[in-house]
Amino acid sequence: MTGIAVPPVSRVEWAGAVRIIRSIYPPIDLFEDIADPADWPLLISAEQKTNPRIMTSIGNMELVPPERRIGGVGSSYLMASFTHVSLDRPSRFSDGSYGVLYVARSYETALFETIHHHAQFMARTGEQAGWTSQFREIVLTVDAELHDLRGGDEDYGPCLDPESYGEAQQLAASLRGSGANGMAYPSVRQAGGECVALFFPDCASNPLQGRHLDYHWDGRRVDLVRDAGSGAVFRVVEG
């Protein structure tokens, strides 16, 4: 159990919040269907009779409590983070055994957050410089009571360590286990930016696809971002 005090709770209401994801992940048909989430287990059972690979697409739906599942157009962008998890993919507020939906308050913050993690991945691959990956912007609404680390309290400093996630994961697991919705915190990758880590998909709504983006790897860092729609290229300036 972490020795960090339980952070205060704040209401976070962000319209136009942003999440950036890899474009290789297509929408999941079941989540996008008009069927009530309560009917999903029956639909999955029926579909498995003719399509045994359906669970690869859906992931582990049991990781999301039935009362907190959401469906409809765009819901894949909210549900997939919770049904596709792996201990090989830990994050700041999860050891990989459960999902977290990470969302930034602004496009710029989401960009810097994803650029950092993409650069780490690219550095491990040893891939040559070039335009390497495609991403898509998801614009959504966040509305939830969240434990708040944005107050500058030094007690929460270990949870915002740029390199180590240990303390943050312990605190998050404890809060999630007690039924918390998630956490609000200052971005570690962009000064002044704000992010949330949501423990359940119904803490967000109205996801809409925005821009398609390309990231350029120069062999050391992501140095350029291209808006695939307009063709405009922007240089990433390290702060």
Rank of each mutant, 00 (worst) to 15 (best):
P41F: 05
M55E: 13
R105W: 02
A180W: 04
G3L: 12
I70N: 05
I44N: 00
D88C: 08
T114V: 12
L78R: 03
Y215D: 01
I70L: 12
E163F: 14
R69E: 02
H212Y: 15
E167S: 15
Y215K: 01
A172E: 01
A191D: 11
R22D: 03
P90Q: 01
R11D: 15
I138P: 07
A119E: 12
L198H: 07
D155L: 15
Q120K: 10
R68V: 05
Q128H: 14
G16C: 09
M122A: 06
S205A: 14
V103H: 02
P7H: 05
G16H: 10
R211L: 09
S187R: 02
R19A: 00
V233Y: 05
F199N: 03
L30S: 09
D227G: 01
R69G: 00
S178V: 00
D33M: 10
A168L: 06
F199P: 02
G71M: 09
A204F: 08
A119T: 12
V12N: 05
W217Q: 00
L175N: 04
W217Y: 11
S178H: 09
V188L: 08
L63T: 07
D95M: 06
Y215N: 00
V139R: 12
G59E: 02
I54P: 08
Y77V: 01
L43D: 03
Q48M: 15
A35I: 06
P27F: 01
W131Q: 04
W40D: 04
V9G: 10
V222K: 00
E154W: 13
G182D: 05
S106M: 09
V12A: 07
H118A: 12
D155C: 11
R68N: 09
M122E: 07
V64G: 04
I4H: 03
Y215E: 01
